[in-house]
Amino acid sequence: MIAFMLRRLGQTVIVVVGVTIVTFILLHLLPGNTVRAILGPRATPLAVHQLTVELGLNKPLPVQYIVWLNNLLHFNLGYSYKLDEPVTSLLTQRMSKTFFLVGASLVLAILIAIPLGVLQAVRRNKPDDYVMTGLSFVFYSMPTFWLGLLLVGLFSATLNWFPAEAPQDQSSVFSQLNGMVLPIATLTLVTIALFSRYMRSAVLEQTVQDYVRTARAKGLSPGTVLFRHVLRNALIPVITLVGLSLGGILSGAVVVESIFNYPGMGLLFFQAAQDDDFPVLLGVTVVVAIATVLGNLIADVLYAVVDPRIRYI
């Protein structure tokens, strides 16, 4: 077990270093010149030279990488000249908002997708199973932005129940939960669609196992077998599913944040892409990538803890 964890941790460290290298390479692939971006097109050659030296941009790339990595380790991700604020402070403001949106949707999606999967497996190949499976396919295949705007059309424009825009201020997310209903609902539906197909087959797979037959032979009721035996085992793959779909859910958050103008990391990233604000783009990228890697690591370790049969090579 400890050997597995150490091995998995070693892989994670390599991947995280890889992530920083890729991000650094992207930083240098990006069109445009940082110095010119700061000083403008009419700067004198002398000023350009001075700033280049000051920012260390004349040093060899490996040296620049080490400097950048060192800054990263000290939570210094550079400065956004477009928004006139350090990237780190922009990120900390926005991160909690995305965390709230993604966290709430993920919890809701798990709470809904698990009973849904059990229901589908129990009612296998009956009309209600077909309806639920069909709906989850449709939600899965629907572009997220259309789903979000359909909800806006129905619940904001027609019924006037919830606002079409998420709360904007720093402090109002909890005081105006009304405005969070539609963004969370959209991301939750997308996530349920991701999960429900796998929950159904996970439960189905368990129902044909020998221990189910044994439990039934002992005289346990079908309900007890389902909830005490089948469900517990079917929950194990959910851990991996959550770990693997983290990237997909974060991607969904970008779309949801831009539909509802919710000032989280996704919207920050999207606006930075439009403004060519490269320090912000790369800061968000590196943070999101490391979060995804750590999410996968936690999922893998949890999986090994929950299911002692799992032993990776």
Partner: peptide, 22 residues
């Protein structure tokens, strides 16, 4: 495979938007 793991760490929409900006 570590190269694959590394690139998979970038959620696809973030990667697409970043490449779209380049």
């Amino acid at each position: 495979m570590r190269v694959v793991d590394t690139l998979l760490a970038f959620p696809f929409l973030f990667a697409l938007i970043l490449l779209g900006a380049i």
